[in-house]
Design a protein around this nucleic acid. Structure first.
Lengths: 159, 159
DNA sequence: CAGTAATAGTTGTGAATGCAAATAAAATGT
DNA sequence: ACATTTTATTTGCATTCACAACTATTACTG
């Protein structure tokens, strides 16, 4: 059976990619404009802000973000240069390093957060009903757990 | 009232970004492995395949994909080099060019399609119920129309 | 119809990316 | 303890990308 080019599933994928990348672009653009930090910087900073001791191993950080190990190395290089993050060697494993938020890093995240939340409301949570938001979240979780198994385990234990 | 770092909305955005990159990476990886074409190539090729005359203006193509004009120029350069696409000057506007699928381009899309659809089923449509798919599609459409107004108009006129 | 503004597309340049190789330290097996 | 394999992170390199500047053409204004 010839797969047809107008198959609904192709359209669906287009819709998924357009929507999600549209949202990401919007978040990144506003973060850059309002707080002078790129989307990836924010992604790293917020993961650190949410972690005990404001620190996370490089490898853990790479898993929790959309960055590859080498990509993360470079992002942390730039964050370190900007004074928002510092590297701290790991006492129990001398191969490893922690990325640690500096005070300025903490301040930066805190200052960026209200504006970022407003943008989220304007483009995501404010556009759909709370019922739709529940549905959306449930579906996304299913999809993410399928394509990135293990990503959820660390954050929502007991699943 | 201080915006808190554990705000649900931040988690939701994280989920959106993880799902997007997970799905996109999976689609791109399998396309590359099975058909030797990158995700962006496929994005361009399929838009052309779905257009009358297998052709589209460069600017239109840039709008319909996630590519910037300059990015598109380069992608079409490489597609032309690979023999999958050709440029044709536009008779009614000498500034403009059409990107046109070559025969080999048509063949490439047709050959890549069945495998790609299988991957979509394995990672997207097969993971959620048909009820969830309807919900998902409705929500995505709302969000996309908000972040990318006008994108839908060309494809689904009369909205 | 001249003069200015807007549009289509390309290109120069510097930054960012990922892959694979390199380095260093731990874990494992003998 | 020694050799081998795995893990954590970084770096070399080639590719890719977006922004802004540039060229060519069309649209608008008087």
């Amino acid at each position: 059976m010839a797969a047809h080019i107008d198959d609904d599933r192709i359209t669906l994928v287009g819709l998924v990619l357009e929507t999600l990348s549209g949202l990401r672009d919007e978040f990144e653009r506003t973060l850059q404009e309002e707080s002078g930090i790129g989307g990836q910087w924010f992604e790293v900073l917020i993961r650190l802000a949410r972690s005990p001791g404001h620190r996370l191993r490089m490898s853990e950080l790479a898993l929790q973000t959309t960055l590859t190990p080498s990509g993360l190395t470079r992002v942390v290089d730039r964050l370190e240069e900007a004074g928002l993050v510092a590297r701290a060697s790991c006492p129990s494993d001398r191969r490893g390093y922690f990325a640690v938020l500096t005070e300025e890093g903490v301040r930066t995240v805190r200052d960026a957060l209200p504006g970022h939340l407003a943008v989220i409301d304007a483009n995501l949570t404010g556009v759909i009903s709370s019922r739709e938001r529940e549905q959306f979240e449930r579906i996304l979780r299913k999809l993410r757990d399928h394509v990135k198994p293990g990503a959820a385990a660390r954050k929502e234990p007991g699943g």
